[in-house]
Design a protein around this nucleic acid. Structure first.
Lengths: 144, 144
DNA sequence: GGTGGATGATACGGGACTCATATGATACCT
DNA sequence: AGGTATCATATGAGTCCCGTATCATCCACC
């Protein structure tokens, strides 16, 4: 179990590198790709909502969204329900570039997962879910 | 298994947020904490070696190391074997601050892992190891 | 054992990023 | 209708990142 924490730490390092490398392929930063990922999975949301999801300062979001909008990754539109709010829509065809970027890794991943039986997959999924909730708790514990 | 990839993606997002939040507690960035983590686990190494481990440009490393040295996180010393090389030593007492920062999460983690039996732990560890090698391969595939 | 070409780290400067604060528009409450 | 809260953005200061040039050092080869 100590080996597990060591592997998790190493995973953190290699994922940082992965995000760096992947980002330079499309001219985006880690947090910008994460923004697109969230938008693709959760759908359009307000600039503020997206900023909270990513832990970014509101003023920083403006800059990020300017860049993403200029690059054709997202569009901005006023929320008709509340005209103060700007809804961010991902441009799905464009974001497909990133999906293709990770296509190689995705196929490696499916190959890798095929080696596990159903019980093992359930264990893995349970573990990952636990990690996500744990990390979320730890993050919010530091909000001031 | 599609749920697993979704959870992994979400894990990427929450880890980005975690690193952001943890970083602002000690005034460091993601990559700087990763640098310290690598130094703590692998021991002292050259500036270049560390830069390659983290996928950072050499010139960027100089700035990062200046900051880490000023903050008392690391020391620089010439390698007697090859006087071009600068060996980076982590200052262990100081880096302990970061360990303490994650102490809460670490204890949550051990609690969480206790719920799994030996076989399940082996599965988890195997999975994590596979992820690390997979991510490494994907990263190096993009080097130009 | 001296010389030319590699290699490691850093100085410098330009461009990009991040954020605190202030501003303008809109919604909500009474 | 008036006052306050909320959302996004403009602005400017500080920081970060990297391409290039530079200096010191090593190594291979003669």
């Amino acid at each position: 179990m100590n080996r597990i924490t060591g592997t998790v730490r190493e995973m953190g390092v290699v994922m940082t590198v992965l995000n760096l490398r992947a980002g330079e392929q499309v001219g985006l930063r880690d947090v910008e790709m994460k923004a697109l990922d969230v938008l693709m999975r959760d759908g359009a949301m307000s600039a503020k909502g997206l900023g909270q999801r990513l832990g970014m300062h509101p003023a920083t979001m403006t800059g990020i969204l300017d860049k993403l909008e200029n690059g054709g990754w997202v569009t901005r539109e006023r929320d008709p329900e509340d005209r103060r709010v700007v809804l961010i829509q991902p441009v799905r065809e464009r974001v497909g570039e990133i999906v293709r970027l990770f296509a190689g890794m995705a196929s490696l991943a499916t190959d890798m997962l095929e080696k596990y039986d159903t019980d093992q997959l359930a264990t893995i999924e349970d573990f990952l879910t636990n990690v996500v909730t744990m990390v979320k708790e730890a993050s919010t514990a530091w909000e001031e």
